[in-house]
Write a protein that binds this DNA or RNA. Structure first.
Lengths: 220, 220
DNA sequence: CCCCGAAACCTCCAAGTGGAGATTTTCGTC
DNA sequence: GACGAAAATCTCCACTTGGAGGTTTCGGGG
């Protein structure tokens, strides 16, 4: 039982005095995963306006109210979809990096892989729209934390690598730029219909990386 | 009367045979503007989910159905809000540019000025989330056109200026990057609460412009 | 196997939504 | 001023939405 009252698969079984439940149902975790799986499908198909708790519940095969047991609100559910996606993306690109284990490489890879799934790009963008107006809300808090963490990690890596010796403000700016460009290019690329459009995602992002790496004073 | 059936202030009065209306009411244009004005206020306050035709109608002081006379749908209304904003922003930064009349300067200025109004950033971002999933929809079509136009203009300017002689693919990539970074940085900046957060919008965007301007082979 | 109680899920409800068709307002013409 | 008709606006309606409280399911313990 997590602190927000919703059930997660990671929590230790609750110990109750005497008779009674010692933990979640056996099917809890798989149900929760299924909800998240169906939610992104519904989102990708119907967009943010069409993704009600009822629409998701229908896709899962339960009532909308059943979802509330796992997630306190639609927003919380969608944020969790995003969080899970982010975790998987990191895992995935890290595993693929092999010995080319720099932030720049990981970022470029993550950008391309994420863009391949418009649903996630759209979800991230929709949450961003919400978070921009309400950084203290569920979506906002998640994104604030997420971007801070990412900027921090990227900056650390740049500072010990390609941008060693540069002022920390410059390193911070580059980290912010890398994330910003990733988001913005993915959106433009998808608007252009993907591979055959006017935006070449890989080449454009690669150019930014090149600009950073060839800046005067940057480590070769 | 425009082609989509909604009333715009730009159309020439309709000429009808014999008796009957020769044009819109005297108050049509001001009403339409008022709807757009109230819509962005409602959006900024309540976010995309809270901005129904009813909420906007209430803010204007008319029924939700009255809005339908001017705009066929909520999406069309919000796209028009965005369009109007874009036009004003271009007008504004152009007027302020004086003799420093390059895309880079205009872009930097527009980025900062736009970010000062979170409602518009959020609206643009929300429309982007919709457009990414449905580039053929109302929001998507507008954004596709808008970005293409912007990339084209920026590329033209770069090609005759700071990036003269560079390959056209590189110029196109830079144009896409400049727009992407502008969007992404504004969002991060707002998530961070604006001026006192971890992201320095002006400095970060300035760094990108600097990177482009100091690239090997770029015109000093 | 039975009991118990919390986990999981449901139905009903009130509130909100956009659309259809009815009604009111405006204004050009005579 | 009267008339007519389109512009502008309204009310009513069916449908959708999330929440509250009721019901069913599951599994630990005896």
């Amino acid at each position: 039982m997590s602190s927000d009252g919703s059930v997660t698969g990671d929590d230790e079984a609750v110990r109750t005095a005497g008779r009674g439940r010692r933990g979640p149902y056996a099917k809890s975790e798989s149900r929760r995963e299924e909800i998240l799986d169906r939610a992104i499908e519904v989102f990708a198909e119907r967009g943010v306006d069409g993704t009600s708790m009822r629409a998701i519940g229908e896709a899962v095969g339960v009532s909308h109210a059943a979802l509330k047991h796992y997630f306190p609100s639609r927003e919380a559910l969608l944020v969790e979809v995003l969080r899970r996606r982010e975790a998987r993306l990191v895992e995935d690109v890290t595993a693929r990096a092999g010995d080319d284990f720099t932030s720049l490489r990981l970022l470029a890879d993550a950008t391309v892989r994420n863009a391949a799934e418009p649903g996630f790009v759209a979800l991230h963008t929709a949450m961003l729209a919400t978070g921009v107006l309400d950084p203290d809300g569920e979506a906002g808090e998640h994104l604030v934390a997420r971007y801070r963490e990412a900027r921090g990690r990227i900056a650390d890596d740049l500072a010990t690598g390609v941008m060693a010796g540069r002022p920390i403000t410059e390193v911070a700016d580059v980290a912010a730029l890398l994330l910003a460009a990733s988001d913005g290019l993915q959106a433009q690329w998808l608007l252009e219909g993907g591979t055959n459009g006017d935006v070449d995602l890989v080449r454009s992002y690669g150019l930014l990386i090149d600009l950073i790496g060839t800046r005067r004073g940057a480590q070769g």
